[in-house]
Nucleic acid binder design. Structure first.
Length: 586
DNA sequence: GCCGTTTTCGGCCCGACTGTTTTCAGTCG
């Protein structure tokens, strides 16, 4: 089992304990342990074999034992027994808003309700409304929750969520009563998916702001409406929360609700070590009762300054060592999206793209890029009209003449997204591949191999002399399918050893390789290229999502291949393809 | 279940909101 599998088990344990009515702090310890595991930089195998698991803050004797057992045997006796002791239907009931462990237990005990289906019947029959502590409204709310659960998935792509958030933010900022307004939460931290939208507003007069917020266009349901906090659900299923705080609290609240939880814990601890108490209300001496004498700040930067820290950008607030880096002045100079000078890995009508070579070139030029590169599918991707050797060679000469025509100022690099076959060999002849400027090697078929086989397969493709970049490392589709299992560390090492780039596939549904791996990989010397995988001109915009990944992965400009100028790219490609004359001619 | 320079027990964030109550419990973030 790998880190994320084990983290899943820890989270499931937490859920089961919750249903059983265990001590909430014990539950939190498991959830905390799961998060720690997911953000762990070190190799889990190393930590287990070196006996260093115990040194991770948050892992005590019990968690070390359980994680070790899961890692070594792939199962956990404690977990199996726990599962047997809880009706599985109860767990899924937790997904309904407004239902927690206590209400679920109560309904199970009094009415025998043990699944969402039974719960629905119990609500409709009026049995739930008659329970002590329940009522008509509760039953209605549960029914609505069941309906919503069927209608919408629970999380949303950052890309989609941000589209919804932008006009809300603009709307808030244009209200005369609003002093300052911002989005917060995972949306602001630019996580790949977000659960809901959080907004923080500083104002002395919350009422008209709340009125506007709940009356927005597209609001399907107002799920909470108070003086300082309101929640709405949009027709798309997205939920948005608004908090209005007095102007002097705005930056404290913004920082608090931007999170992450781990980051906040670390910040509070740091405040405490300085005799201060930090919360969404302010920063005050520990021994004072309220925040009336809080420090005054006029930006988040001020808050970090009070704690003797460099400013930590929201993207980095994941509790992954950013405080330590901010303390010692070792925060990275993060990649700026403006330094992207061109993009690779894009499709045209030659395979499954929607736009022609010229349309794509024009669009790239309009974006001010110095170059862009085609990478249509190879023939094994039959469903995508993949190119065989002959069609690849035809496309190369087409691109050659387009470049020579000087019709566009943007230069076109010829590439291909070559399928990595089941055994790790590539789908096209080596001579064809070496005639291209670059090759993105990707897996699209036989994705159910074991981790060991898949790792070997990827490494073999990386070792192929024609491979320039490795495409979407795990093949994951966010919110839809897990990626295939692969030993990331071994693949990264192989890429470094062979001078191969691993792409950040910037398609908002992929964002693969994941940001969690980048800091460590880049430290070891891995380069990336932020590739939009565009299938139409609008998809060039995906670069922004890829830049988010790079920034969350602590990458700076020097780690990103497509910040190079067109001449630098030609030189880099020419190194691997010394026989290609056109790469030398500038 | 974790943690500890007031350390092996007792605290772990706590306030807003809702719906049920008539002073509070449960949920949420």
């Amino acid at each position: 089992m790998d880190k994320s599998d084990i983290a899943d088990v820890l989270n499931e344990i937490a859920t089961l304990l919750e249903i059983k009515g265990e001590n909430p702090f014990k539950i939190r310890a498991y959830q905390n342990g799961a998060r720690k595991l997911e953000t762990l930089e070190e190799d889990l195998g190393d930590l287990v074999s070196d006996g260093k698991l115990k040194e991770v803050a948050g892992f005590g004797d019990a968690l070390v034992q359980k994680i070790t057992e899961l890692y070594e045997t792939g199962s956990l006796t404690f977990f199996e027994k726990l599962k047997d002791s809880v009706e599985p239907g109860l767990v899924s009931m937790l997904e309904i808003p407004g239902l927690g462990a206590k209400k679920i237990k109560n309904m199970h005990k009094e009415l025998g309700v043990a699944s969402i289906e039974e719960l629905k019947i119990a609500c409709e029959s009026g049995a739930v409304a008659e329970l002590k502590g329940f009522g008509k409204k509760t039953a209605e709310k549960i029914l609505l929750g069941i309906e919503n659960r069927e209608a919408y998935g629970r999380r949303h792509l950052w890309w989609d969520a941000f589209e919804v958030a932008k006009p809300i933010l603009d709307g808030l900022q244009s209200l005369p009563e609003v002093d300052s307004a911002s989005h917060a939460g995972s949306l602001r931290r630019k996580r790949e998916t977000v659960g809901d939208l959080d907004f923080i507003v500083g104002s002395k007069t919350p009422k008209p702001i709340m009125d506007w917020f709940v009356a927005q266009e597209g609001v399907k349901e107002v799920t909470a409406r108070g003086e300082t906090k309101s929640s709405v659900r949009f027709e798309s299923g997205l939920q948005a929360d608004l908090r209005v705080v007095p102007p002097e609290q705005f930056y404290f609240a913004l920082h608090h609700f931007t999170g992450s939880k781990d980051h906040n814990v670390a910040m509070r601890q740091r405040a405490l070590s300085r005799g201060m108490s930090l919360s969404e209300w302010g920063l005050k001496p520990v021994d004072e009762d309220d925040f009336s004498n809080s420090k005054v700040i006029s930006s988040e930067e001020d808050l970090f300054k009070y704690l003797d820290l460099e400013y930590v950008l929201p993207e980095l607030r994941e509790g992954a060592g950013e405080i330590e880096a901010a303390e010692s002045g070792k925060l990275p100079q993060l990649l700026d999206g403006k330094s992207i000078r061109g993009v690779f890995h894009n499709h045209t009508t030659a395979s499954d793209g929607r736009c022609s070579l010229e349309e794509m070139t024009k669009a790239a030029q309009e974006r001010g890029w110095e170059y862009w590169g085609t990478a249509d599918h190879s023939k094994a991707s039959f469903q995508a009209n993949g190119l065989d050797d002959e069609r690849v060679l035809e496309q190369i000469s087409l691109i050659d003449s387009l470049n020579k025509s000087r019709k566009f100022s943007t230069y076109v690099f010829s590439g291909v997204e070559c399928d990595i076959l089941t055994d790790g060999s590539l789908d096209l002849d080596e001579s064809t591949l070496m005639s291209l400027d670059y090759v993105v090697s990707s897996v699209h078929i036989s994705m159910t191999q074991t981790e060991e086989d898949m790792t070997k397969r990827l490494i073999r493709a990386i070792e192929h002399p024609a491979t320039t970049m490795l495409g979407h490392l795990t093949g994951r589709i966010l919110l839809r399918r897990e990626g295939y299992k692969v030993d990331v560390s071994k693949v990264v090492d192989a890429a470094i050893a062979n001078g191969v780039i691993i792409e950040i596939n910037a398609n908002p549904r992929r964002l693969d390789m994941d940001w969690r791996f980048w800091r460590r990989a880049a430290d070891k010397g891995l380069m990336t290229s932020i590739n939009p995988d565009a299938h139409r001109i609008e998809h060039f915009d995906f670069v922004e999502a890829g830049v988010n990944v790079a920034r969350k992965g602590w990458l700076n400009e020097s780690h990103v291949f497509n910040t190079l100028s067109v001449d630098e790219v030609r030189k880099a490609f020419a190194k691997r393809r010394p026989a290609l004359g056109r790469l030398k001619a500038v």
